[in-house]
Amino acid sequence: MDVFELGDRSGAARAALSKAIADDYQAQTAGLSILECLAVSNPAIAIRYVEDLNDLAWQGSSVIRYAAQNVLQQLELEIPSAPAKVPLPAFYRLHFPETPKPEISLSGDVTPPGEPLPDTEDPFDLTRMYHHVLKRLASDVELSFDNLVRRMAQLMRIVAPPETWSAKIEREIYRHNERIGLKLTYRRPRSLVAQHAFGLLVSELCDAEVVEWIPTYVREILVVADPPGNLVNILPRPDWLYIPAAEELGKYP
């Protein structure tokens, strides 16, 4: 963002952004986050990417669709027409044997602070953070919650191979950042894959017209950028502002 605001005289930032929004889910997420902010702070730059945004406005993952459409709306441009209706994948109608769904993760109640979530192949464990919205979707579209859970877990492996978002990879990223002294926050690989898997699931339901684009209660799950928050000037936290830590945060900080 700073490079764009300063002028990007070499064109390197513009080239990197173009490459990102033509790349995989992870790169597109980062690129569209920048474009969402540019659409607010510097529309003249964001509007150069209209052709790319039109191509992404109905891309597979609803995460990408929603971000691209947000930029187009911010630029007061028309969103391309939705694609023609397609059949709902048969997976959603399959019947599975009843599966235990414990409220507590199979790996335990609380993951120690800073530790990645343990690896698991259990679909209900993989999608646990999305159960509240999957249950509402299941009710609205009259499909099995179990099937939505299993489909999302299946889509996680389609978004990226499990070895690329394992606990081992997350620890390697953490150690790498520590070694180079990088203190910036970053998206954990598994959380990004899960978000896009959920986005693919929503797209499948919308493209089959099982649910209208886009249910209001799923929007916050698909967000990749918050321009008012992302663009605000960061100020040091005053000493008198108390921040709770550790056990004070409770079970779900």
Rank of each mutant, 00 (worst) to 15 (best):
M1L: 13
F4L: 07
A13Q: 05
R14Y: 10
A15M: 02
S18N: 15
D23Q: 09
D24A: 10
D24Y: 04
Y25P: 01
Q26M: 11
Q26N: 06
Q28L: 12
I34Y: 05
C37N: 14
A39P: 04
A39L: 06
A39D: 00
N42P: 00
P43L: 08
R48D: 11
Y49T: 02
A57H: 04
Q59H: 15
Q59I: 00
G60H: 11
G60P: 01
G60Q: 13
S61F: 04
S61G: 03
Y66I: 02
Y66M: 13
A67I: 09
N70F: 03
L72W: 02
L72E: 04
Q73A: 09
Q74E: 12
Q74C: 10
L77I: 01
E78C: 01
I79Y: 07
I79W: 07
I79E: 03
A82C: 05
P83N: 08
P87I: 07
L88C: 12
P89Q: 03
Y92V: 07
L94Y: 13
E98R: 15
T99C: 01
T99Q: 08
K101M: 11
P102Q: 07
E103I: 08
D109L: 14
D109M: 13
V110L: 12
G114I: 07
G114L: 08
E115S: 13
P118T: 03
P118E: 08
T120P: 07
T120Q: 03
E121H: 13
F124R: 04
L126G: 04
R128K: 13
M129K: 13
M129I: 09
M129Y: 00
H132I: 07
V133E: 05
V133L: 07
L134Q: 03
R136G: 01
S139D: 08
D140V: 10
E142M: 11
S144C: 05
F145K: 05
L148N: 06
V149M: 07
R150V: 01
Q154Y: 14
M156P: 02
I158C: 00
I158N: 06
I158F: 12
A160H: 06
A160N: 10
W165Q: 05
W165S: 05
S166I: 10
S166C: 05
S166F: 06
A167F: 10
A167Y: 09
E170K: 02
R171T: 12
Y174R: 15
R175P: 00
N177H: 14
R179K: 15
R179F: 12
G181E: 10
P189W: 01
S191K: 08
Q195D: 06
G199V: 03
L200P: 03
S203P: 00
L205F: 09
E209L: 05
V211Q: 09
W213Y: 14
I214N: 04
R219T: 14
L222S: 02
V223S: 11
V223I: 15
V224G: 08
A225F: 07
A225Q: 08
D226F: 11
P228L: 01
P228G: 04
R237C: 06
D239K: 15
W240A: 13
I243C: 06
P244T: 09
P244G: 13
E247N: 09
E247Y: 05
E247F: 03
Y252K: 13
Y252A: 10
